[in-house]
């Protein structure tokens, strides 16, 4: 009565982590996502740009020509040099230097590191909070759901920037000055992250409501799995698709928010500038003719955000069969 199957041997192979990884890679290689990736040149360029920026940020100490925060390598004599291709340019500083003699290229690479770091950290923070609350809200339902969703509604009525400013302001008031400078990055991550969790929570709650009523979840309940394990082992992996899309787009948004806050002067301190801080510093020199100090960080920021956004758009389309 067996339906003929092309199996080899009678032994169930061991399902080790290694097997799984290989398997996942093989599946990804043949999957529709990979296919749609290969068919979209725009996405491939966006991915390449993002990869270059992320890699150079991660390996900044090796990639950057100078370490702009190492006072020993900075020479005030090099201050305010224009880009190297201009008349007064210096071949050592491709994109020129700022008022303290730091190479713009190097500050951008190190600045992108902070921007991306803050961006990723806030996304992870928002994702954990949002997905966690969304799962609980959707799976448990009832009063718990109502409370979480009303909090989310209230949260949503504050613009993200305003919320971040508020958190930062409170942190400034509560923490002593030195402590604040030290903790600035964490405050930033917290305030950007907290303004982003609602989207995750809502999406995950919706997907959870759908998954919860699917029969495989009911089967797990009949088998007698505790709810928490059902949520983690069954529901979570099946609601992560849309979350990855949101996370990608949120990353772009988080980088912008960080830049905005830093530009407004409530972000990271100028001694360890992010891209936003660099633009903020640079704008003072715009009118004195040293346009490169603000322009190049701004351009990198714009390109990075655009590339990440394009990736997010593509991922959304690729994961949504209806749009294909």
């Amino acid at each position: 009565m067996a339906e003929p199957r092309g199996g080899i041997g009678g032994e169930v192979p061991d399902l080790s982590l290694w097997d799984r990884t290989i398997d996942a890679l093989v599946r990804a290689r043949h999957s529709d996502i990979w296919y749609s990736f290969k068919r979209s040149p725009v996405t491939m360029v966006a991915a390449a740009v993002t990869a270059v920026i992320i890699l150079s940020a991660v390996f900044a100490p090796w990639v950057a020509p100078y370490n702009p925060f190492d006072l020993a390598t900075i020479d005030l004599m090099d201050a305010s040099l224009p880009p190297s291709w201009m008349a007064d340019g210096d071949p050592r500083f491709l994109l020129g230097t700022d008022d303290q003699g730091r190479g713009i290229l190097s500050t951008i690479i190190f600045g992108a590191r902070i921007s991306l770091g803050v961006g990723f950290a806030s996304v992870v923070f928002a994702l954990i909070v949002g997905v966690g609350l969304g799962l609980i809200s959707g799976y448990v339902g009832g009063t718990v759901d109502a409370v979480i969703m009303r909090v989310a509604d209230i949260q949503l009525s504050f613009p993200a920037i305003l919320l971040a400013l508020l958190v930062d302001g409170v942190a400034r008031g509560v923490l002593p000055r030195e402590a604040h400078d030290e903790l600035a990055i964490y405050v930033l991550v917290f305030s950007i992250g907290i303004s982003g969790w609602v989207q995750y929570a809502r999406t995950v709650r919706g997907s959870t409501l759908v998954e919860k009523n699917k029969e495989y979840v009911q089967a797990a309940r009949v088998i007698g799995r505790p709810a928490i394990l059902i949520i983690l082992r069954h529901v979570l992996p099946n609601v992560m698709g849309p979350v990855m899309v949101i996370a990608t787009i949120h990353l772009a948004l988080a980088i912008i928010t960080e830049a905005t806050l830093s530009f407004l002067g409530v972000g990271v301190s100028p001694t360890e500038p992010s891209l936003g801080t660099l633009i903020n510093v640079g704008q003072d020199y715009l009118f004195s003719g040293e346009w490169w100090i603000a322009l190049f960080p701004g351009a990198v920021l714009a390109i990075l955000v655009l590339a990440v956004n394009l990736l997010g758009d593509w991922l959304r389309d690729a994961l949504n069969p209806k749009l294909r």
């Binding site: 699917k214 029969e215 495989y216 009911q218 089967a219 797990a220 009949v222 088998i223 007698g224 069954h234 992996p237 099946n238």
Partner: peptide
């Protein structure tokens, strides 16, 4: 509970796809 089990209608929804 362990004495009973259930088989569902939809063969596509009753197994976790992952």
């Amino acid at each position: 509970q362990p004495h009973m089990q259930m088989i569902f209608q939809d063969p596509y929804a009753s197994l976790n796809p992952r």
